[in-house]
Each structure stands twice: as structure tokens, then as C-alpha cells.
Amino acid sequence: MSTLSLRAVRMTRGHGRRAVRVLEDITLEVHPGEVVLLEGPSGSGKTTLLGVAGGLLTPDQGDVMLAGQPIQAVNNDARRRIRSAKVGFVFQRANLLDGLTARENVLLMARLAGLTQNAAELETTRLLALLDLAPCAGRYPTELSGGEEQRVAVARALVHRPAVVLADEPTGSLDAEAGRAVASSLTSLAQEQYAAVLICTHDARLEPFATRRLQLRDGRVFDASV
């Protein structure tokens, strides 16, 4: 059974004469432990698709199942709870909160997901160690390198053991070495946690880490593995 499933999803952004059909009959499934790369040119709708998959946007038509739950059928509060408990996000910019240390940034996500203080502390410590971030745990984002920041963002995305990880150009702002380190950490740890991973990217460096590749063109998804 897939962890993330989109069926016949249609999505229009904008209103009236400015309305643009962004997603057209999208059907895709991502299974536990699978790493799916979604490639496509800028403006092809990758971010919108991530928004729909993560329950941030409601599609005009179609069904979205997240960890077995139909997210368009529930109210905003329930959707928020599903998101915080079942989804991990990695953004192009790390988007860490400046006022918190690396450790606190991760801890905050764990607490938002409903982990107890003790469980959140343990899981944060474990992940920061796995990502070689233990020495930077007490540093603020402005004191971290770009690669370190993004690895903290990976820890934040995984700390609550989400069923689905959605990543938007996670290596887009990193150099080759840091990009590889982030991609490797994200995919290996997510697979270890048996999470379904959907990564939107232009970055060919990510291809070796993927189990499957998809192309998004003209609002439709095509299999790019063949």
C-alpha cells in the first residue's frame, strides 16, 4: 500500500481570467522506503504538486491520500495535525528559525508533531549525531555553513519519523559536495525510517539516490525512468 497517493488530481491557481490550470489529471503513488524524483522546468507546477501532496492546497478535483488518510475530506485543523505528524518538509532554503539553535529548530518540529519533551530530546540528539551535527547543535543558523543548515533541515524533516517526506530543491542552493552530503543523508535516513520520499528538483546530482524518476510537463506526470 502506498504512503502517498494522488489520483486524478486537478488544480487551478489564480482566479477569473488569471486562472491557470497547473496540474492536470495527476496520478502518482509513492511507497514506503521509495525515493521518487520529480523533475521539471521552472513553472511546471512542482511546488504546487508538493503543496497538494502535503495537504497545504486543496485540489479542484481528485483524491489525495496521506498515510492512508484522505486529506481533502477533513477540516483544516485535522489536515494540520496530519501534516505535523505524518509529513516532513525540506525546502530549498533551509528556512531555519534564526532565534533558535540548530538543536532547538529540530526540537520544535518534534514538539509540533506531538512528541513528548523526553522523546523529542532523544530523537533530536540521535538525528543530529547521525547527521554529524552534534558539534553544531548549540549554534544559531547564522553560525552554520549552508550544508550544515540544510542537514539541520533534514533532521527537522525526519525527527518525528514522518510517513512522507516532501522536498523542494533540497540541494538547489548548495555546492556539489554539500549537495551530495545532504542528498545522501536525506535519502538514506528516510529509507531507514521507511518513509516515502518525493523530491522536486532540477539537480541531476540527486538521480543516483532515487529509486524512481518522474517528469512533470504541462501539468502532467510522466515516468522518466525509461
Partner: peptide, 12 residues
């Protein structure tokens, strides 16, 4: 952006 990120992460 921080608030948007927090909302995306599920902050109430």
C-alpha cells in the same frame, strides 16, 4: 517566510 514554514510544518 518563517510563519509560512511553521504553518506548513503543522504549527497551529
Amino acid at each position: 517566510t518563517d510563519f509560512a514554514m511553521l504553518i506548513a510544518l503543522g504549527a497551529s
